[in-house]
Design a protein around this nucleic acid. Structure first.
Lengths: 217, 217
DNA sequence: TATGAAATAATATCGGATAATACTGTATCT
DNA sequence: AGATACAGTATTATCCGATATTATTTCATA
């Protein structure tokens, strides 16, 4: 199980990745090794290892002999990410709804329940825990596609989700009960084993989110 | 432009990745730092950086406190990779055929021509240059989807292609003129701007290749 | 102001030192 | 004999300092 971002004892990899996704390290900003060394109290060797990992995942850009930069953001990139999420996540969802067994269904019900509770807290104005909320959102989306049967697909999706998440955190606006209803409809379609409807609801969910994020970008 | 594998002055990253893909570093084998240090005449720091990069791309597995291993192979993994290639590459091809301009078409014609020449050499029994042949195959497939308009999609595809390539190199058998005809039909459909036919031909091409590779695995 | 050389800063790579962990082989006990 | 405990070895992970290469900035001169 992957560790969450704000856990105690998080590795410098997890901490830097978190800071990029949540905007504490601004897009395009230079990642000076000496500065990072103090901020994360790690040695240069360790830092270069994690920066290389983040570079190959696309959160950091490495320019030869000029060091590392936080990957810049752009509307085009956001649109690409969203489109890829539709392609991969809808595909995974179709497989998952077809193959999912009782365990999958149970975990999905639990994940949706926890997400729904958190969504109601957010709706009532308590937006102090965006990170927690987004963790439940992630757990829900992951639970939906968990039974797709392809580890490769799941790990590609995890990276895409995080890239998309960075854009959502940058604009920092809450979409309200629209998204809540989309989650519910998607969830119900999955439990009904209605592959086409579930996939369609997911696509709508992502595309609505994209529009909302683009508008504020 | 990414450097090819066997170029002079290749980085240790490129050399290790090449050795994994072409089987010189066997699947599942342990990557002892001291051994690698001699083999690639690089320092431990540099090696750990490249191994971290390769780990996040999926060519290497990192086990905490136990070092690095070449990612193992399995039938299931091969099938997953092939299915993902179908999903991503066919999607990219549809976009590319729709959007491709004159430059795209020109580069595609050139890439197909070079691939075809090499295929004829291979057909006449000269299989001494598998790496070159596969480079032309890569250049052709890349040229096909180049106009898809999504950098993210292209870079995901590049990793998938290399993972699939490793399996092909492991079984080391040549599929003969079947693949040649598939390439030609795919190419012609793209020039005709027949999106559906091109995508269908590509899917068939990958799935035939999968069957062939699975049979020898 | 523009140019170019010198000074400064930052990166990339290397080798070594140390601590923590994993592995191996031996001896002991049941 | 087989399992367990322990000591010794090997390997990894992290950190630090040194050096060479490359970027960037400063500044003197035309």
């Amino acid at each position: 199980m992957a560790k969450s971002y704000n856990e105690v004892g998080a590795s410098t990899y997890q901490r830097i990745k978190r800071d990029i996704i949540f905007g504490d390290l601004a897009p395009g900003s230079k990642l000076k090794l000496d500065g990072l060394r103090q901020r994360y109290s790690a040695s240069m060797s360790t830092l270069r290892e994690t920066l290389n990992r983040l570079a190959s995942e696309g959160f950091v850009e490495a320019q030869d002999q000029r060091g590392f930069f936080v990957t810049p953001v752009s509307r085009e990139d956001l649109i690409e990410i969203a489109n890829l999420r539709v392609l991969l996540e809808c595909h995974a969802l179709r497989l998952s709804v077809e193959k999912g067994d009782t365990d999958w269904e149970g975990n999905l019900v639990a994940a949706h329940h926890k997400l729904h509770l958190m969504e109601q807290k957010m709706m009532s104005g308590d937006d102090s825990r965006k990170e927690d909320w987004k963790r439940y959102d992630w757990e829900f989306h992951k639970a939906m596609i968990q039974a797709c049967g392809s580890r490769n697909l799941l790990s590609l999706h995890a990276v895409l989700y995080d890239k998309y998440l960075r854009y959502q955190m940058l604009v920092l606006t809450y979409r309200g009960d629209e998204a809540v209803n989309e989650h519910r409809r998607m969830f119900e379609a999955a439990l009904d084993r209605d592959v086409a409807r579930a996939s369609q609801e997911l696509q709508t969910h992502i595309e609505k989110g994209l529009e909302h994020t683009l508008a504020a970008f």
